[in-house]
Design a binder for these strands. Structure first.
Lengths: 186, 186
DNA sequence: GTAACTATACCGATCGTTCGGTATCTAAAG
DNA sequence: CTTTAGATACCGAACGATCGGTATAGTTAC
């Protein structure tokens, strides 16, 4: 291969940053070009399907992030509560302490294609399932574990929205702090 | 006035429906024109400031909705818990049982002007304050009331996001159901 | 007459997209 | 070792369409 100026991972990371900030319709190819250093024509060399293919690749990377970091950490060894605290730090990192929007929120806005929505639905369900399992593992009934898992994700998503609206990350940080109790306390 | 084909209220309601669904950048003047029956030129007759002025008018209408319906219901007579159940039904109505996104979420996306963000921050703070007051009124300490108010809004916003991602309104409905306990139980 | 709106035409800018061309590298041929 | 061919990766320029916005003349209702 000849002179690849930016790696696929790096490219998708920068693209993700744009899409989670501006949403599907808010990200233009010019902005994408500017952020990645690739000319618009080059974007079509890498992703012949254009913007749709790029956003699908970005969503795929988000899914991979869940599968490679969050889910393994939840299924690791040791006490459930300890594992949750590891996940909390991963979430803090991914959401930059509450200053970066959630990709699931921003990409599920009307405008993207049907494949994208399916992907987001699947990853959200997988997230729900993973949280449910660790809650179960810490001794809860299945029904309670499901409720707690949903509440956890709801509060993560909601606190990100509120933090953005207020211009203050404190709500997100408060939410992270109570996640261990939410998911591992009966 | 002669031949006013659509009232300001009706116009802003339809515009709000567009903005909360597609976000600021996702709403074009053509779409706005199509949804309201007003030609593009007529939009500029009513709102010489263009899209910016329209979205500000929409945001103003959202704020008025809070001031004229939600806040009065919270400050009405009768037991706090009863007032909260009234508010719950207002929220269910405004969010169409969870199928319509929150305007605060969608309009706080990067792209809108600084005035818009200020407006959204103010209305969110007012909402927070109103929930805090009714929680206080039902016997909580100020610090607990504040936490519960924030949790309530966080869970409303978050459940709307999760509901949209899953294509299932149940999370939102579950959140509404526990709002009375959240805001009025010590 | 005037206020509210329509019809149409236009503007420069940007949208997503496409195409022809140009470096840069690898690999086979001489 | 050099030459050549071909694939790879990228770019400049332009496409038609639409964007937000403007201008003007005409129509309708009070």
């Amino acid at each position: 291969m000849a002179h690849r100026t930016i790696s696929d991972e790096e490219f998708l990371d920068r693209a993700l940053d744009l899409f989670r900030t501006y949403g599907y319709e808010g990200v233009s190819l010019s902005r994408l070009s500017e952020a990645t250093g690739l000319e618009k024509a080059s974007l079509y060399y890498r992703y012949p399907g254009g913007k749709e293919e790029i956003v699908m690749a970005v969503a795929t990377r988000v899914v991979q992030g869940f599968e490679q970091h969050l889910f393994p950490a939840l299924k690791a060894e040791g006490p459930p509560r300890k594992r949750v605290t590891v996940v909390v730090e991963q979430l803090r990192d991914f959401y930059c302490d509450g200053s970066k929007p959630c990709a699931i929120n921003m990409l599920s806005i009307a405008g993207g294609g049907e494949d994208l929505k399916t992907m987001l639905r699947n990853v959200t369900q997988a997230w729900l399932k993973a949280f449910t399992e660790i809650a179960r593992e810490s001794g809860m009934s299945l029904s309670l574990a499901r409720l707690r898992a949903e509440e956890a994700i709801v509060r993560i998503e909601g606190s990100l929205v509120v933090a953005r609206a207020l211009g203050d990350n404190a709500p997100f940080q408060r939410t992270l702090k109570l996640l261990p109790d939410l998911l591992t306390e009966a």
